[in-house]
Design a protein around this nucleic acid. Structure first.
Lengths: 161, 161
DNA sequence: GCTGACGGTTTGCTTATCAAACCACGACCG
DNA sequence: CGGTCGTGGTTTGATAAGCAAACCGTCAGC
């Protein structure tokens, strides 16, 4: 990973991997660019057209994502004279994020789902399980444990005098 | 839902629920604000402190999220003189998005996870299954089906003349 | 060496973002 | 009743980012 990992305490607000993750992919175009690469579109022009992003913004974001180790440039097998954008392992690992966003958008953001995910040959109905116990991850069974001193769910609490 | 759902074809680029979802929660502060509300922080000041967002931005985003039907204002039970921000069902349904982002950030974005999700009393190891067949959703078994004419994985293809 | 496609970069303008100051309201204090 | 504190924002003025469109360099084909 070219980009060093972020120290979560260096960001403003609560130290949290969500904030750190958003530091990398949390802007207007990054996730859409990653979606396109995941769909098999590896070239600048394709990504620009299919996301609708301005070319200069896209150029900057792709640079950032390469820097962050989410994308890498690599000559395409079929056409070795072009260096396309490809997913690294970190990039491929964003698939669940895009899937949950897609599922949420399908349910809450759009008039009618413009795309469907198929698992084998039936529509995917995704749910999260906990692989250590195999059970469905019911929000009611989840708790958080903050590992940074003086931080709780409620916020930052400096040591009482 | 106060806000009408988005027609995905009205957005630039590929019609896709991911883009529509990002239209609602895809900016720098929304998801962090939602995280705070999910953590039980319902007041403007708490959210501002714990996210690090500038107050004017936060004010604008919270308005937008209320408009979008992700948050709602409701007097707190304990202290009925304050109208706090609370999650709607759409907001609660963003939990999986935050969980996947957290998991990705833990793995790829930070030096060391500042927070841990506990399922019952063991660390949560999330994975996606398909509830229709019960199997783990292996990316290799997933395909996409676009339901908008002239759009494929590769992009927009106007009807051949 | 001309033309066109590709992959960006530069330009000039518009818009968003930010930190800090400001304001309104209610509670509480005397 | 005036003063001041906590809360929840809004306003302000400077800075940075975003955008569409034009431009540039490279390579391929002719």
């Amino acid at each position: 990973m070219p980009r060093p990992p972020i120290d979560p305490t260096s960001l403003p607000g609560r130290p949290c991997s969500i904030a750190s993750a958003l530091e990398i992919v949390g802007d207007r175009w990054s996730l859409l660019a990653i979606r396109e690469v995941m769909f098999g579109n590896h070239r600048f022009g394709e990504i620009a057209r299919n996301t609708g992003a301005p070319r200069d913004r896209l150029s900057a974001r792709l640079k950032g994502l390469v820097q962050a180790g989410v994308l890498e440039r690599r000559p395409s097998e079929h056409d070795p004279r072009y260096e396309g954008y490809h997913l690294t392992e970190a990039g491929r690992d964003l698939a669940p994020v895009l899937r949950t966003l897609l599922a949420w958008g399908d349910r809450w953001a759009v008039t009618s789902p413009p795309m469907r995910m198929l698992h084998h040959d039936h529509p995917l109905a995704p749910a999260t399980i906990c692989t250590t116990c195999g059970e469905l991850a019911d929000p009611a069974d989840l708790t958080r444990e903050t590992r940074i001193p003086h931080w709780t769910d409620a916020g930052h609490e400096p040591p009482a005098a």
